[in-house]
């Protein structure tokens, strides 16, 4: 009970700290600007206007959440260490795991608020442009939230042992690998089937692709914009399984981050 209270207090403080960050406001304003720009893109595009507005705005939501996770999230832990506020905080009867998890939920709350704000903007745009605003679109936004839950955990994991710049690069790397690992595996298997590579090299490449696919979180699973934009049905229990998938990765990443953080010296 006491641990939950500590996590709550740290999360609230993290949230308060993050919403004072100028970078956050820049990202939010940029995201809103780009979402509004999707109206113009819809007019210019040769594709269906509603399709362009819907898919562009979902992409903007995803990328802006990624930027918040990286630029606000990673600096959160590093700032505590560099400004030495961590010394007073961790001298209290708080476990280091509570600190890491509190930071995590604080930032997750920031991303959630950002998504709610953008969702509001999104629906206003859809209403104004008469681009069929359906509640089904919320499914895609929910999965963006799940994806960011993993990305924030990854960012915290890296920031628990490396510098701000390296943490940002590593997190970006995991994001890209998480989105491309499925595609890579498909391409390698396709090339093998077509016999485009030698036996030895194809076996090695396939093993590498399988390993990458297994190790990195499959973030591609959370991108369902083509389904929702076209109104296609998702497989049964898709949301449930992917929610559990995200929860599993979050638990693993936060567990490792907490373990690593608890071994750290604070000078």
């Amino acid at each position: 009970m006491q641990t939950l209270k500590h996590i709550g207090i740290i999360a609230l403080n993290t949230f308060r700290e993050s919403i004072r960050d100028k970078i956050l406001y820049n990202i939010v304003l940029l995201a809103i600007g780009l979402a509004l720009f999707s109206i113009v893109l819809g007019e210019w595009s040769v594709f269906d206007r509603a399709y362009v507005i819907k898919s562009t705005t979902l992409t903007v939501m995803n990328l802006s959440c990624l930027l918040i996770s990286i630029f606000v999230g990673i600096s959160l832990v590093q700032k505590e260490i560099q400004r030495r506020t961590v010394l007073t905080l961790l001298s209290k009867p708080i476990s280091r795991a509570s600190f890491v998890i509190g930071k995590y939920f604080g930032l997750l709350a920031v991303v959630a608020v950002h998504l709610v704000l953008l969702t509001g903007v999104y629906y206003v745009i859809l209403f104004l442009t008469k681009a069929e605003p359906t509640l089904y679109l919320l499914t895609a936004i929910y999965l963006i939230f799940c994806e960011m839950a993993i990305v924030i955990a990854v960012a915290l994991l890296f920031s628990s042992f490396s510098s701000t710049v390296l943490s940002a690069l590593f997190t970006m790397g995991v994001y890209l690998a998480g989105h491309l690992s499925d595609e890579l595996l498909e391409q390698v298997r396709f090339a093998n089937r077509m016999g485009e590579m030698g036996d030895a090299s194809s076996a090695i490449l396939e093993k590498i692709a399988v390993a990458l696919h297994a190790v990195f979180p499959g973030l591609y699973r959370f991108n369902i914009s083509s389904y929702v934009v076209h109104g296609l049905a998702l497989p049964d229990l898709y949301l449930l399984w992917n929610s559990l998938y995200a929860l599993g990765y979050v638990c693993v990443f936060l567990g490792v981050a907490s373990w690593w953080f608890s071994r750290r010296d604070f000078l």
Partner: peptide
């Protein structure tokens, strides 16, 4: 052990 301790670091920094 930290339930019994109050600690103020050298040149304390806060939020």
């Amino acid at each position: 052990s930290r339930r019994f301790i109050g600690y103020s670091p050298e040149q304390p920094y806060f939020y």
